[in-house]
Amino acid sequence: MTSPGQQGGAPAPSPAMFARPADDGQPAIDAIETALAELDDVRELPVSEHVERFEAVHAALTDALSKADNFLSGTSAHRS
């Protein structure tokens, strides 16, 4: 007789085999904080440089959100 979790005497696979590495989201939080820090001194910049700064922050936040979406959906997008 086989016990639950065993089929034909073969041991059941360990759930750890399917686990993803622990990720508490800290890299995304750090990226967001860094991006937002780029806005701290925007008042001191000439207005002509504001758009460039806002676009850079927007791109960084979009990237962080994309990585979070990929992590939550179980996919991985490798960028270089």
Rank of each mutant, 00 (worst) to 15 (best):
A22Y: 09
A19F: 14
V42Y: 01
G25Y: 00
L45C: 05
E49G: 02
E52M: 10
N70P: 01
L39K: 05
R43N: 13
A37K: 09
D41R: 07
L72G: 03
L45S: 04
S73C: 13
H50V: 01
L36F: 00
R53M: 06
T2E: 11
F54T: 01
E49H: 00
D69C: 09
I29P: 00
V47G: 05
S73L: 13
F18R: 11
D23Y: 15
A28L: 14
H50Q: 03
P21H: 08
A37H: 12
D30H: 05
D30G: 03
V57C: 00
T34M: 07
S66P: 00
A28P: 00
Q7D: 08
D30R: 10
D40Y: 03
G74D: 08
A60S: 13
S66Y: 09
V47N: 07
A37G: 12
R20V: 10
A16Q: 12
S66D: 14
A56M: 05
A59V: 04
Q26H: 02
T62E: 15
A60L: 00
N70L: 10
S80K: 06
R43V: 15
D69L: 13
D63A: 14
A35I: 03
I29K: 11
P4E: 08
E52F: 11
R53P: 01
M1L: 09
R79Q: 08
D30F: 02
S14A: 12
V42R: 07
A12S: 11
A77W: 07
A19P: 12
V57Q: 06
G25F: 06
A77P: 02
A12N: 04
A56C: 05
H78M: 04
E49W: 02
P11G: 10
P46N: 03
L65W: 00
Q26D: 15
P27Q: 10
Q7E: 08
L39A: 08
A77L: 08
L45D: 06
M1H: 14
Q7M: 08
Q26Y: 04
A22S: 06
Q7T: 04
E33D: 14
F71G: 04
A37R: 10
R43Q: 13
T2C: 03
L36M: 08
G74F: 11
M1G: 13
A56T: 03
F54I: 06
P46T: 02
H58R: 12
S66V: 10
A28T: 07
E55T: 09
A64C: 09
E33K: 13
H78E: 08
D41F: 05
I29M: 13
P15V: 03
V42T: 08
V51Y: 05
Q6H: 02
P11D: 04
V57L: 00
R43G: 14
D69H: 12
A59S: 15
E38V: 00
E38M: 11
G74C: 10
D69S: 07
L61C: 13
R43D: 15
A37T: 08
A59E: 14
G74M: 04
R43A: 15
P21R: 07
D40L: 12
S80W: 07
V42W: 09
A59D: 15
S73Y: 10
G74Q: 14
V51M: 07
